[in-house]
Design a protein around this nucleic acid. Sequence first.
DNA 1: ATCCCTGCAAAATATTTGCACTGAT
DNA 2: ATCAGTGCAAATATTTTGCAGGGAT
Lengths: 160, 160
Amino acid sequence: MSEPKSPGEHRLSARPELAGALEPVFEQLRARGGRITWPRVAILEALVEGPHHATIERLEARLRVTAPEVHETTLYRTLAALEELGVIYHLHLGHGPSVWHLADTRHEHLVCSSCGAIVEVDPGDFDGLRASIAEQYGFILDTHHFVNQGLCAVCATDQH
Amino acid sequence: MSEPKSPGEHRLSARPELAGALEPVFEQLRARGGRITWPRVAILEALVEGPHHATIERLEARLRVTAPEVHETTLYRTLAALEELGVIYHLHLGHGPSVWHLADTRHEHLVCSSCGAIVEVDPGDFDGLRASIAEQYGFILDTHHFVNQGLCAVCATDQH
DNA sequence: ATCCCTGCAAAATATTTGCACTGAT
DNA sequence: ATCAGTGCAAATATTTTGCAGGGAT
């Protein structure tokens, strides 16, 4: 092995432009006693590039290209560890597999049950509902984990 | 076998008081060309007795008692077939396994992410949100499939 | 009599765990 | 030097599928 692969040196070499987006994550990770390893860098890269809402499957496919040496098990364990640390989170878009996000890009989701389209909406839209539910039931909605299914504008029009 | 087990004769023998709730389902099933079999009767019985929101696991446990001869495979296939026919439906309460309902008992759900409590709420509470989302995004929310996570009144108080 | 539904076995998927080694700090 | 993180193998859990027989209509 002529090439040392210390993350400290090679970090983000595949996508230097992502360094900006990930640096805060690394800092937070380090601050909490986490270690910056090559697999973690590769996984976080896979998470921030391309469309977010990355499924495990999508991340695996991406890693097969960018870092085939990263084992599937590591992906599961790393996602769980990073979520535990609060730097990423996952949610379920109704049925189907869960999707993963960087924790700094939370938003509300609408999922089209017909075509699968994901519409991101203004969190403020939910304020009224949140207040009403809190008042009537004492239930504090966590709208970040909301998954709202229905028909997107296109599919609604097609079916009317 | 001295005991014939034709569903037509022995239907609901275990829980005759459930006949009323299930008769419309059987009619609908028959009307669509479906057949009333003993496993289906047992599965529907398991579905309507006890708390609804039945998970596959719960149904299996119940069937192990009431109809141990019903194979797990049959449970999956039957649930899928009955959903196809529109007499039952399932939804996902956030993470965890999906739950199954009779189609005639739809309601909105709030799921406590801390203790797992399920709060059923007035569908009218969502009217404002539904209108707002439709207006702004052209997205038709299907509030039956809504899964709303958060903290129930008890857990919210404990954590405050 | 037809063919939908079922049981059984086996396969396919998805996720988790034990263990010893490696490498980030 | 420590111990968190990893690879690998195997175990678990969950759901699906092929096929032949049985029963509801």
